[in-house]
Design a protein around this nucleic acid. Structure first.
Lengths: 109, 109
DNA sequence: ACGATACTTAAGTATCCGCTTGACAATAGG
DNA sequence: CCTATTGTCAAGCGGATACTTAAGTATCGT
């Protein structure tokens, strides 16, 4: 599997979980520590750390540890993978709609 | 849970599976029947139908049955839910970067 | 009418995933 | 130093999920 494809997998899989999206929403407002992330989510810190590992490997989040606190922040570049994938699909079906009428069926075979 | 939030859930969950994304990629090129979708995926038609149900409930795909063949096509509007969610996050962290320097940490508490 | 095609539905299975618990490590603060 | 805080790691549990198989329905072509 090509490297880029594997990354698309990781990104969409990461965004597929509601808790991880809640983390992303939180981090979009401000960087914050792992334990502070956990509090409003009603799950243990251990669970949050597991989510953070997935988010970090997907490139959506970056974390840095200083002292005993791990500060988490959004990695904006990571999201362009998802936006690009959707964008590519969109350009495809828009191209089709240009060639043919929107509502005219053109089933294959 | 607000209706819109539930839909975001469905959309990202649907896109979280690689097989379903493969289906979306295929449908972006042209509408196609369920059994034709199955062939290159190396899974049974029954499995494809299950994926189609999820994709349809998420609003990403629309299917219409005429005679015995169910034709599947992309529902472009469905994708804007995902694009919008990402777009909202992006505008948030960009706003932060305007107020402060990009690299200046501002951890909460 | 009959067989083949295209899908549908239900049930079962095996794997994955999110989460907890509990034990541990490292740092901060009095 | 001693204790509280913050995070890490490993193991395990239960439920979700992606798939298969098998049996059924509806439609098409001859």
């Amino acid at each position: 599997m090509p490297r880029q494809k594997a990354n698309i997998d990781r990104v969409f899989h990461a965004l597929g979980d509601p808790t991880r999206r809640a983390i992303v929403e939180r981090l979009s407002e401000a960087p914050i520590s792992a334990s502070h992330l956990a509090t409003p989510l009603k799950i243990t810190v251990a669970a949050v750390v597991q989510h953070l590992q997935i988010l970090e490997k997907s490139g959506l989040v970056r974390t840095t540890k200083v002292g005993r606190v791990r500060t988490c922040r959004i990695e904006p570049k990571g999201f362009s993978v998802a936006e690009q994938w959707i964008g590519e699909r969109r350009s495809m079906w828009e191209k089709r709609f240009d060639r043919l009428g929107d509502f005219l069926a053109e089933p294959e075979e």
